[in-house]
Each structure stands twice: as structure tokens, then as C-alpha cells.
């Protein structure tokens, strides 16, 4: 199963929601679309689903042109953030709805529903109504309903955003496992970069209606294509080229960046040597698994992260080193 999107564009009056969006994804990839609010993630997902028509561009699935095919004929599964279950149907009826629409006979629907109830571990709740379920249970039912009719593509629009942190991480793993088992090409919208990095095989980072970068999580984190992606994908130290040349020439590693380039150094790639000299600790934040240390350095301020509890206190003098290969150069924009 291969999804190929080329040059999709959509404008709502003067707002351009999508502008020249292209990418390809192949089963069994898990693709996460990431980006700040209003960048067009939902619009793109809804366009893939067939709920929004593009102004121009094409959408192919296995080289079948779906651009003008209505949502009901695409055979995709979809899960929205909230309000996703039919309130007038029980859990079992919700899950079997797509199969009934397809015209499957009652017996087959029943068997398939039982199977899915087992998968989402809610067999005992089959006859409940949505309002009798917790938020997490509701989203699991919505997921079961989306995959019941063996969709060609699974689309998820922030399915976990309305849930609390614990349920969110649990369900996240569940979605990932299910997707792997089924080998299902899945596209999920999220605004949580951690979620994207842990779940996805491919991340599509969007900015103002176009794709800022698409690639593996590693690519986006380690080798951001531009400053926007570097900034968006977690914390980073952005050091201008002149500063690097003056105070941290080792970051150049024999590389000659173009004028106006910025070095992007992740906090975990900065090593602080206690007892050394060259920088001063400004503050230390203990975050559980890591400690975040703010240091003043002739080139400005930097953020460093160390595993566990840092044995440093504010005011201490430390030595500063950069892990080799930990620096990415991004252009100004």
C-alpha cells in the first residue's frame, strides 16, 4: 500500500491552509504529522480522508487516483480527537457499523465485533453506551470501529489529546502494536513532538501549510533541515556561526558552513565537567530522569542535560565540551 500525495493546495478565502504539500508513505509505516497549531495538519488529514476537497494537487493510493473520490468510497478508517462514538449505539453497534454499511451479514458482523472487542480488551462492555465509558475506553472503541472493516489506511487526528498522561502513553503503545500487527499504513496528527518521536517511522513536520521537513524521527532530531524544525523538535541550543568561530571552533569539525548558518546543539550533546573552567552554572532543574542545567558561557547561555541527578549547584564553575558529531547546521530561515 503506497500513498502518494503531490502538490496539494487548499485555501479558505485569504488563509492558505495547505500549499504545495507532497510526500509518499508506504505500508507498514507509521507516519506522524507534527506542527504548531493552525499549520494545516488537520486539513491535510481530512483531505486524505476525502472530507475536504483540495483546490489542486493529487492523491494516489497504489497509483489509483483518489483525488475526486468521496470519503465513503475510500475505505479508510478514521479516529477523531473527541465526540467520536455514535451516542445512540452501543459499543458493539459502534464497532460493527462500518461492516453493516458494507452489507456484511449479521453473523459475520457479530464474529468480527467479538474479535475486535477482544483486541481492545473491552469484551465485557459490549452492550454499554458511549456515555458509560471512560475517555480512554471510548477512544479504544473508536479505534476498533476504524479498523473493523479492514481499512486500506488508518487516519488518526490527535486521538490521544483529550486523555490524561497515563492513559495516553498506554494507548499510544497499544495503537503502535496494533498497527504493527496489521501492517497498516497509519497517519496520525499530533502536536506532541515526544509522541511523534516515539511512535513514528516517519515524521512530517509542517509549518504554515507546507512541509518543513519529512523523514525519520532521527533525521528530524539529529539533522533538522532548518531552524524551524530544530526549534520545534525539542530543546536545542542555537549558536550563530560567528560565535562558533570565536568560542567553539571544534563544532566546525572541518566543515565550512555557509554565511548566516546556525549551529544546533542538543542539550544532551553538551558535556559539563565539574571542577573545570570556562562556564558558570546558572541554575539546575531536576526533571526525574534527567537534570537540566543552565550555564553561562562566553558565547552566551546554553542548556545542557545530564542523566540522573546532577552533582552541580548554581554558581559552580564547570568545564564545557561538545560531543563529536552532535552538531547540526541549519540555515537562517
Amino acid at each position: 500500500m503506497q500513498l502518494e500525495i503531490s502538490n496539494l493546495r487548499k485555501a479558505y478565502g485569504a488563509t492558505v491552509a495547505l500549499d504545495g504539500v507532497s510526500f509518499t508513505a508506504t505500508a507498514p509505516q507509521f507516519v506522524c504529522m507534527l506542527g504548531p497549531s493552525g499549520c494545516g495538519k488537520t486539513t491535510l488529514l481530512r483531505m486524505i480522508a476525502g472530507l475536504v476537497a483540495p483546490d489542486s494537487g493529487r492523491l494516489l493510493l497504489n497509483s489509483e487516483d483518489l483525488t475526486r473520490v468521496p470519503a465513503r468510497r475510500r475505505g479508510f478508517g478514521i479516529v477523531f480527537q473527541s465526540y467520536s462514538l455514535f451516542p445512540n449505539m452501543t459499543v458493539a453497534e459502534n464497532i460493527g457499523y462500518g461492516l453493516r454499511i458494507r452489507g456484511d451479514e449479521a453473523q459475520r458482523v457479530r464474529i468480527r465485533v467479538l474479535e475486535l472487542l477482544d483486541v481492545i480488551r473491552l469484551s465485557e462492555l459490549a452492550d454499554r453506551y458511549p456515555w458509560q465509558l471512560s475517555g480512554g475506553q471510548q477512544q479504544r472503541v473508536a479505534l476498533a470501529r476504524a479498523i473493523a472493516a479492514e481499512p486500506r489506511l488508518l487516519l488518526l487526528d490527535e486521538p490521544l489529546s483529550a486523555l490524561d498522561a497515563k492513559v495516553r502513553t498506554d494507548l499510544r503503545t497499544e495503537i503502535r502494536n496494533l498497527q504493527q500487527q496489521l501492517g497498516l499504513l497509519t497517519i496520525m496528527v499530533t502536536h506532541d513532538q515526544e509522541e511523534a518521536l516515539t511512535l513514528a517511522d516517519r515524521v512530517v513536520c509542517m509549518r504554515q501549510g507546507s512541509i518543513a521537513q519529512a523523514g525519520s524521527p532521527e533525521d528530524l532530531y539529529r539533522r533538522p533541515a532548518n531552524r524551524f524544525v530544530a526549534d520545534f523538535m525539542g530543546l536545542s541550543n542555537m549558536i550563530p556561526l560567528e560565535t562558533v568561530q570565536k568560542f567553539a571552533a571544534q563544532l566546525l569539525e572541518g566543515h565550512v558552513p555557509s554565511d548566516g548558518a546556525t549551529a544546533c546543539v542538543r542539550p544532551e550533546d553538551i558535556v559539563l565537567v565539574s571542577g573545570g573552567a570556562g562556564a558558570t552554572v546558572k541554575s539546575v532543574q531536576f526533571l526525574g530522569n534527567i537534570s537540566r542545567v543552565q550555564v553561562a558561557w562566553p558565547g552566551g547561555e546554553l542548556v545542557a542535560e545530564q542523566p540522573g541527578m546532577a552533582a552541580l549547584a548554581a554558581g559552580a564553575n564547570v568545564g564545557l565540551a561538545f560531543k563529536p558529531g552532535g552538531c547540526a547546521w541549519v540555515s537562517a530561515s
Binding site: L51, F76, F80, S84, F86, I101, R102, A142
Partner: peptide, 22 residues
């Protein structure tokens, strides 16, 4: 909620069905 009508559409429901059942 529009999400419900859209979910039904993605599940293959035509408009008459969406109107009747959702």
C-alpha cells in the same frame, strides 16, 4: 458534532444514511 457525521462518511455511509442513522 461534525466529527460523527464525518466518521460515518469514512465508514462508507452515504448522506441518506448519515441523516437517518447519525
Amino acid at each position: 458534532p461534525a466529527a460523527l457525521e464525518e466518521t460515518a462518511a469514512c465508514l462508507g455511509a452515504g448522506l441518506p444514511r448519515v441523516m437517518r442513522e447519525v
